[in-house]
Design a protein around this nucleic acid. Structure first.
Length: 457
DNA sequence: TCTGGGGTCCTAGGACCC
DNA sequence: TCTGGGGTCCTAGGACCC
């Protein structure tokens, strides 16, 4: 545990609407609501003037209009927000090189590299300086929390919002948290709150008094342990300055539910284009393709599959999306469709092998039935593999054997191999007891490897 | 009230492997 | 015939965050 207040959390106040008010002076002092415009939109950010009317994030825009009809309703302009964000992050970078940007309007700063020995008065002055500097160069207000951990800094930045600062003295963490509703802990949402309530725990102090085993019993291993530690005011997570994206996706809620597959595929194509465009821009390839389908009744499913090789090819992604979508029932009405990729790897696999395969790819697949007429050694753990032109090939065995299944007895085997260019097929049996490598390899011109009619089953 | 869009992490079951 | 144990990968869903 850190003993000095070196972790700082910065949160820009009502960020989207604040940028809008900055750019358009006539909006200043008035309720501003930024969010989706359509019938199914929700509030992204409400200015503090709008919050007085009970408008908050994630509220349906329809409800917001009811509560605050005179607000300015704006669609987000992410370019402007990113530009303002960059300026703010630049200010933080002057304070310490160790920064973790959590989102466009939020970041942690670890002061250890530049101010390892700060105490409460010194860090208070430093943080007020940061807030003043941000306001000076951007006109935006920020709230800052400072403490011995990310947890405490994050809780602190929320305590004096907006335009506020909270420094939590080392040693007072557990006491600070004890009286707070459990929901205030990061990682506790509606579902977890409900679970804890069911066990009679409403404030953080009650969780802290339970044993870790009790909390793990309620919330599961990983979550339970983290929540219990947090309730005790303990958190030794380090900042993670640059994190590589693990997935990229695009989704769209339609203004009316769709039932037409052609229409759905048109939307899917546009989303796939955006997704592939984003990964190729970063020189990435993806192995897993996912679709997300939300029905008229808000029930949501995802379907995915994983390719053998990563790809950045739009046609391949599109073919995968179509295949997944074809297997989903859409006749009752689809409210939302999403397309995503995951399993991202750093560079394109346009290697020699795929080029070679692409060259011979026009050759139609053939099925080559093969049969081994020689007795195999009697030993457990032998498997069947096949190669075509020295590359692993699809292969299957007769129902008595399945691919990879152990060859238990001295038996004869039969199966088939499928692929293009069957001129040089190799069928190989190998097992763990013979050391690495094949113990017996049959080639297509071996008399023991019979080539015949496709097996019938 | 009738619920966006972009992510992350965790869990659980089944397949498969050793 | 009754039936192991651990590890990894894949898929699906859920909770959570901003």
């Amino acid at each position: 545990m850190r003993t000095r207040p070196v972790i700082l959390h910065l949160d820009l106040d009502a960020f989207f609407s604040a940028v809008e008010q900055l750019h358009k002076p006539s909006l200043r002092g008035k309720p501003v609501i930024v969010g989706g415009t359509g019938r199914r939109g929700v509030v992204a950010t409400a200015s503090y003037e709008a919050r007085k009317f009970g408008v908050g994030s994630a509220m349906p825009i329809v409800e917001a209009r009811r509560r605050c009809p005179n607000a300015a309703y704006l669609t987000p302009r992410f370019q402007a927000y990113r530009a303002a964000s960059r300026v703010v992050m630049g200010v933080l970078a002057e304070v310490s090189p160790l920064i973790e940007q959590v989102s466009v309007d939020e970041a942690y700063v670890d002061l250890t590299p530049t101010h390892p020995g700060v105490d409460v008065p010194a860090v208070t002055e430093l943080a007020e300086g940061i807030r003043a500097r941000i306001h000076q160069v951007t006109g935006l207000t920020a709230s800052i929390g400072v403490g011995t951990s990310k947890l405490i800094a994050k809780i602190g930045s929320d305590l004096n919002k907006p335009d506020g600062l909270t420094v939590v003295p080392p040693g007072s963490e557990r006491e600070l948290l004890a009286g707070m509703p459990v929901r205030r802990l990061p990682g506790i949402g509606p579902a977890t709150q409900e679970r804890l309530h069911k066990f009679g725990m409403h404030v953080v102090g009650e969780v802290a008094q339970a044993t870790e085993q009790e909390i793990v019993g309620i919330l599961g291993q990983a979550h339970g342990r983290a929540v219990h530690q947090h309730a005790l005011g303990r958190d030794n997570r380090e900042l993670e300055p640059e994190r590589d994206a693990k997935s990229v996706s695009a989704e769209e809620t339609f203004s009316r539910d769709l039932t037409d597959r052609r229409e759905l595929m048109e939307h899917a194509r546009r989303m796939a284009e955006r997704v592939v465009g984003r990964i190729t821009k970063d020189g990435l390839c993806a192995r897993t393709i996912t679709i997300k389908v939300r029905s008229y009744d808000f029930s949501t499913i995802t379907r995915s599959f994983t390719l053998d090789q990563p790809t950045d090819s739009l046609p391949k992604v599109l073919a995968g999306v179509r295949q997944l979508l074809d297997a989903v029932e859409v006749s009752d009405g689809i409210r939302l469709l999403g397309v995503g990729v995951a399993g991202l790897t750093a560079f394109a696999q346009t290697d020699l092998l795929s080029d070679l395969l692409a060259e011979i790819g026009d050759e139609p697949d053939e099925v080559l039935p093969v049969k081994v007429t020689e007795d195999l050694p009697s030993s457990k753990g032998f498997g069947w593999t096949a190669e075509l032109n020295d590359e692993p090939a699809d292969t299957e065995l007769t129902p008595d054997w399945r691919p990879g299944q152990d060859v238990v007895h001295a038996e004869r085997g039969a199966g088939w191999v499928q692929g293009a260019g069957l001129g040089r097929v190799t069928v190989r049996f190998e097992g763990p007891h013979t050391g690495p490598g094949p113990i017996r390899t049959f080639r297509s011109d071996d008399p023991e490897l019979e080539v015949g009619e496709p097996p019938v089953w």
